[in-house]
Design a protein around this nucleic acid. Structure first.
Lengths: 225, 225, 225, 225
DNA sequence: GATGAATGAGTGTTCATTCAT
DNA sequence: GATGAATGAACACTCATTCAT
């Protein structure tokens, strides 16, 4: 049975383990990460691990939870400081990429969660998406974003951020992993192009289709396979 | 050393193993998938596996390769049958979601590849992205898509497809895995909203920003990974 | 990675494993000796093995090293207690046969080392031979042994001891393995004959050849096959 | 069930397998030698092996038998061509070392036989030793060899040949294995020293011991194993 | 609170042997 | 006579977890 630490020393030990687990999970993945590696990275004895966590799963979930909380705070903090909705959006994405560069664990861990902890995976995405949805709804009320299903838009934004981040933050030009700490941010031009794409996708006004009926919904039903 | 089968029987056995591996990897993930599970699913003896594959890694790579080839064919076949660029795009996305529904292995396996076979992961994404890039470049020449960096657009599209697919094809409403074979396609309204978003993002014409400079930033350079 | 034990309990466990390995290697040979057999013989869990040894090879090498050290100590201790060179030699051989009888593992393990651990094999022989060489050189200085290449003599002595030991200590009359613990020593008459042979081979004085040129070296060069 | 070949083709196939087995056993040892390796070396199909041999053990025994027969023939042929007893002995040893250089399989295989096929091991040694015994007995009758137990002398000779051969034929100066085919013969000086040692050990005449009783202990009895 | 020795179920992989063709 | 696909028992080794100190 794991326990909540009862002393300051215990609190420190627990934090060291959590930090070590993030690092180890990020660098070798969940399955290659052994408790021994984590405790060695944390500088504590093997048995100490089970004083604070019930299992490898449990610390994984907690790492995911932790990263999720931190990335959301980073994003909302950045957005809050911005003036317009547009600026908030840009600030949010910038914060997201910055966090990704600083915490590659986020990506790498999340992508493994599919089988390790499906619940944690879904919670992670849903929470971030919910943040987008809130922002989009507010922007729709003020007319800055067109009338569309904010949930769909939110998942689209999430996807854009995810793959742009993966491509430009986590991969180097050769497709190899950059040295830790040397991860570049998304290049400015790429960021700009991405924001243009998003802005146009969300902007109010007539659909740009030329020879097309522009009524936005429910026109088609056959699944052309 | 694995070998290429020299008889029809051998060819059949190898194919059974590949099929079984796709199923097993998709349902329990790479690490939980044991060779025993795969051979049992294939209905062959354990040792038979090593007649055709050098290792668990090797069959994983081959499954990824195979799925990648099939999803790209599904997408390009669908697109080819379409008339306009717009229809081609829609057809491609539909084919992608359909394939995802029929082969959840694609997603589930790819997301694990990060640590199991990083090379396979990157190859998978870049191949699909390259397909998008080709299409976008052609559409830019004919004026259907605005002047933007097609690589950025391609990764954005990839991300949108990935997360919309994950959310509406792979998850059910409760966030649990639907029964195999019962995976729904992306709901029509969602698909329509998504396409609207993409269309607006790519469409030529002035940027909708009010107080912003609307000249599209153009930083075209070879950054196709 | 194996580790040096940090506690008295660990030290005991490691010693039990080493002892068990000697027994198991001696009775069934390296290849038939499984880690399970060794740990069962040692009365510890399977996984415990890998706490103290990196691999089956590693414990084999250590057993060889250990036996080598012990047989050399047995021989030199016996020889040291003797008065004359001749007595020392006899005492050394007796100690060697006694050790062989008590540790059939020595022979049986060494003979397998050819492929399992060639380095260990050569080290074993070389060390013992070097001991002989030292003794022979000293005896040459005092005139007790004739002027001959001590290295050749040493390997000859080693060979004599090896096969006499194999024949009379390890085999019973039927050529089967005696029950453990019941191994006889080399019979006194055989020992005496062997020593006579060695004494004469090493003794100073004219070569006994009757109708032969008695100059000791370099007379022949053709390799009559 | 293995079978005796009934056709010339079958006879050739069987011989190829035997030859391949000798090579493979010699180069990688019994346990690393797989049937696949042997059949590949022989250039025949895997299944063909079991047409001619019942098991891996069976072919091993036959290889040992074969090598044993050949080394004995090489030795006796060489000895027969010699004039005196002494020359016969020298010729026999030379033939033994030559055979060893050309067929390292002999040593390497024999040393493994301890556990693989104890019967084959003992048969090998006793057959050669019996040859020595015959020669020694004859030489005793003619007075060329002193009255000693010929069995003990024979095993001593066997041991000397075995270790001198191992040291100077099978090992190179660094203790590594020489390239196949490049094995040197025993250097002439070494050979000469060895023969001197043996000659003196066997020669008639008073024992060289100073303060010792020199009557040769004689315990002749049938102890040829 | 902290430790590390101990455990054994589980894994990937090899290979002697069988047998249908 | 010859082949090679198929098999499964067996093995070396890993690691999450427990527990005595």
């Amino acid at each position: 049975m794991s326990a909540v630490p009862r002393t300051a020393r215990g609190t420190r030990t627990r934090a060291k383990l959590l930090q070590a687990a993030e690092t180890v999970f990020a660098s070798v993945g969940y399955h290659e990460a052994s408790i021994v590696k984590i405790t060695e990275a944390a500088g504590v004895g093997l048995g100490t691990f089970y004083l604070y966590f019930d299992s490898k799963q449990a610390i994984f979930d907690e790492v995911v939870e932790d990263l999720n909380r931190r990335v959301r705070h980073a994003m909302t903090d950045a957005a809050r400081a911005a003036g317009t909705r547009l600026e908030a959006e840009r600030a949010g994405f910038r914060a997201f990429f910055k966090f990704t560069a600083e915490h590659p664990a986020l990506y790498r861990i999340i992508r493994q969660a599919e089988f390790v902890s499906p619940g944690a995976l879904r919670l992670h995405y849903t929470r971030i998406v919910n943040g987008y949805i809130e922002g989009l709804k507010a922007a729709q009320l003020s007319g800055e974003v067109r009338e569309m299903d904010p949930t769909v838009a939110a998942w689209a934004l999430m996807g854009i951020g995810e793959l742009i981040g993966m491509r430009w933050v986590l991969w180097d030009e050769e497709g190899a992993d950059p040295a830790p700490g040397a991860r570049p941010d998304v290049p400015e031009e790429v960021f700009e192009e991405m924001m243009q794409f998003i802005e146009r996708g969300l902007a109010p006004g007539p659909a740009p289709g030329v020879g097309r009926d522009s009524s936005p919904t429910q026109t088609q039903e056959g699944n052309a396979p």
